[in-house]
């Protein structure tokens, strides 16, 4: 599904070029559940943004379902991204001025889904996440866990093939985190959705089948998760 070949990302800092990602090459197959770990500042978010086509690599090649992402037009990239990718953020990133319902609806609007279909899709999500009663509330009226569930629901509403999650549980109490992670596991196992999450904690990493550790922009470790394997 994903193939990265010698991806680097660098920024100019004054006269110095600082490298955030150095020569990253990796493959991810459809249906995998990958956890990316590593110390703060090691480039995890940057990598995730590149995978999600929110940011472009400085050099290297990126193939998504065999499409050369590094070469195609902005327009086509947006299409790919709309079609296949859902994002979940540590800071939730809901739109403050929209209700839960409208936040869920927004990606469908951009995808130009028809009104009636849109309604039923949003209703289904609200139902799945037990949020029907909260649909007219604004994000600020929800707890962090609830907001993140909306974030997950919003990522799922497009029925993406790939979910990218940047420390999705970073701001949550453990119990809320569990709910979110259980969702991910369920999606991965039942619907075959590919999941790549960034996390600091071994505990959350253990939900994945494969762990990649980044240190200073390099892949330090890339192996199947022993705990996950034993839990199986």
């Amino acid at each position: 599904m994903i193939r990265l070949d010698k991806i680097t990302k660098s920024y100019l800092h004054g006269f110095n070029r600082s490298f955030i990602l150095r020569n990253i090459s990796l493959d991810v197959q459809e249906g995998e559940f990958v956890s990316i770990m590593g110390p703060s500042g090691s480039g995890k978010s940057t990598l995730l943004h590149i995978l999600g086509m929110l940011n472009e690599p400085s050099t290297g090649e990126y193939f998504f379902f065999d499409q050369p992402v590094h070469k195609i037009s902005e327009r086509k990239r947006t299409d790919l991204h709309r079609e296949y990718i859902g994002f979940v953020f540590q800071a939730y990133h809901l739109i403050d001025d929209l209700t839960v319902y409208e936040n869920l609806e927004t990606p469908l609007l951009y995808k130009k889904v028809k009104g009636s279909e849109r309604k039923s899709m949003v209703a289904e999500m609200l139902d799945r996440f037990n949020m029907v009663a909260k649909k007219d509330l604004f994000p600020s009226q929800l707890s962090g866990g609830q907001q993140q569930l909306v974030g997950v629901a919003r990522a799922l509403i497009m029925q993406p093939k790939l979910i990218l999650a940047d420390e999705p549980t970073g701001n949550l109490h453990t119990s809320h985190g569990e709910i979110v992670m259980d969702w991910f596991r369920k999606l991965n196992q039942e619907d075959g959705v590919t999941i790549i999450q960034v996390t600091h904690s071994e505990h959350w990493a253990s939900y994945g089948k494969r762990v990649i550790e980044l240190v200073d922009g390099r892949v330090e470790r890339d192996e199947l998760n022993p705990t996950q394997a034993s839990a199986e």
Partner: peptide
């Protein structure tokens, strides 16, 4: 600053 965050989110959600 707050509008720009909204721009980011909307782009992530597929806005052109």
């Amino acid at each position: 600053a707050s509008r720009s965050r909204e721009v980011g989110i909307r782009k992530v959600l597929g806005a052109e």
